[in-house]
Design a protein around this nucleic acid. Structure first.
Ligand SMILES: [Mn+2]
Ligand SMILES: [Mn+2]
Ligand SMILES: [Zn+2]
Ligand SMILES: [Zn+2]
Lengths: 140, 140
DNA sequence: GCTGTAAATGATAAGGCTTTTCATTTAGTA
DNA sequence: TACTAAATGAAAAGCCTTATCATTTACAGC
């Protein structure tokens, strides 16, 4: 992700924006809440407001640089948008997230929208379950 | 839906619970927010607290009488659970909701969960789009 | 039918996450 | 370097939902 991407989106190249990008790119976890990003910045010694983190993430989403997941229970997580759509599998025990893409499902969704006269704009698919970690299987 | 269903769930048969059930069964719209149920009750002249509506809906969900949808943007809607699972298509313009069931998608989901070592507990699939009403197509 | 007791209710406060407000600072141009 | 619009941060406000707790109610047992 480059400075140019910010420019194209009509966004000034500011320190907070660069820092948020840096976190998104370098964090070991790919899916981060606004709070996660905020905490990571504080740990880096950056002085940034939580409101700015929310604003920047929302702007990045609008610019197509980031995508937002709305998890059951209300809070959102963000990830860099590399242009390749995918869906998610959540472990309800340890919150691990696995990404997947299934062309059959994608096609069926398009067909369902069309057969109901809908112009599909988006879709969201989350599969919830218990992953194969020992401590998670134990819980089940 | 019968009083017996409440009994089986270990819930006393109270006026607020019966009234909420009545709204869910008789409303012209099948999918209702807690606020919708609350307003419908007020219009019927029932004196009921919003907190009670939330509590009752959550209890009904736990008892399997009602299912909860988490729509993008954070607020939940409820519908009677007749035992038949289905997913939803939302018009982003007029908020119309269409229900569908697709066995191929259901199977693929199970396969994806399994191939990732997950014991699937649930899934949620929402398709968003613009429906075929004139005023909605115009917006697009 | 009464009574007693645990469950349920309602008003209100509190929570969690996110957005808004607005005075101050900053980026980017001239 | 100076100017101006955009961006920021702290704090308040919003929105939906849940928790608290004093009061009321359902219903089992007399
Ligand atoms: Mn992802
Ligand atoms: Mn439905
Ligand atoms: Zn797990
Ligand atoms: Zn529509």
């Amino acid at each position: 992700m480059e400075r140019q991407d910010l420019r194209k989106a009509g966004l000034k190249i500011t320190l907070p924006r660069l820092k948020v990008l840096e976190i998104l790119e370098n964090s070991k976890q790919r899916h981060l809440s606004a709070e996660d990003v905020y905490k990571a910045l504080l740990e880096m010694g950056e002085e940034i407001g939580l409101a700015t983190v929310y604003r920047v993430l929302t702007q990045f989403e609008g610019a197509g640089l980031v995508s937002r997941l709305n998890i059951d229970g209300g809070h959102a997580v963000f990830e860099l948008d590399d242009g390749d759509h995918h869906d998610h599998l959540f472990c309800v025990n340890c919150n691990r997230i696995i990404e997947f893409y299934d062309e059959v499902i994608e096609q069926r969704q398009r067909a369902i929208a069309e057969s109901n006269g809908f112009e599909m704009t988006d879709h969201s698919l989350y599969i919830y379950g218990v992953c194969n970690r020992e401590e998670c299987k134990k819980e089940r």
